[in-house]
Design a protein around this nucleic acid. Structure first.
Lengths: 140, 140
DNA sequence: GCCTTATAGTTTGATATCAAACTTTTTATG
DNA sequence: CATAAAAAGTTTGATATCAAACTATAAGGC
């Protein structure tokens, strides 16, 4: 079989998913944001306030990148940043009301991506795919 | 937005694979190149001369991005660009001797990535993973 | 043969991203 | 304690990337 190109396949899927996320956000009036901003907003909406380092770990970017991304989200009014009480090195980032209001849109977009990508697959196949991808992820 | 969605997993795998490629290229003296440059070089080495548009399609980037990437590869002496005879709009990009000399390194890196990511998986699992990912890719 | 449309590629401007150097605060160690 | 090491963020500089506007060539319709 042609299993040589799995990483290549993964690259293409990743790229397409990112494009879809951008389109869907735009279609819901969440304009001017890259998928990375969406990942941050989604993390904050569903997990609550996070430090810069935690965000960096979750979305897998350099912390200096997070500085820039969160800066933009602050300028747009979606999130706010406060100094952590107890450890003044840390900054805690949390969604504002405007940011929290995006939750339904994020749920809808996640659902759409999920439905679309999983079209014509059985539950067993989904489980197996997830299991195998987890293994690959652990191997790297 | 469930963070254990496969698209999220795929994003992480993609990211890790890119990092690994960068490290491995660097370790073999192919310095100052991003994975995208590696993708272009690999395509040219294994498929032969390609036009800018073909490269853009293969590595899934905007054509203006290809202009910049190929420009760097030219500056570094790995590839050269000629006007296509017959259709003077097109440019044909081909590896130089210096570029062709990278073939063994690319083969080794591809092998390493493959071996590492597929560790502890059976042939059947690999086939199944490839089949499922192809389906997802088609769905998007 | 023209003129319109399509195609190949580049240029320009903006943004995401990383890495390295740096600042500030906290923790560890002798 | 005092000082060194670690950790959290930011700044700076470089590069990859995209989108839109542009140039140049080719193809098609009348």
């Amino acid at each position: 079989m042609k299993r040589d190109h799995i990483i290549f396949l993964i690259g293409r899927i990743h790229y397409k998913a990112q494009r879809l996320l951008e389109r869907e956000m735009k279609a819901r009036g969440i304009e001017g944001l890259a998928p990375s901003h969406g990942e941050i907003l989604g993390s904050l909406i569903f997990k609550g306030p996070l430090s810069m380092t935690e965000i960096a770990r979750i979305i897998d970017r350099d912390k200096s990148t997070i500085t820039a991304l969160v800066g933009k989200l602050i300028r747009l009014g979606y999130v706010e940043k406060r100094t952590h009480e107890g450890d003044r090195r840390m900054a805690l980032v949390a969604v504002t009301k405007k940011g929290a209001a995006l939750k339904p849109a994020f749920v809808a977009i996640a659902m759409k991506l999920r439905t679309l990508s999983y079209r014509d697959t059985t539950d067993d196949e989904r489980d197996e795919l997830y299991r195998l991808l987890s293994k690959i992820n652990g191997n790297l």
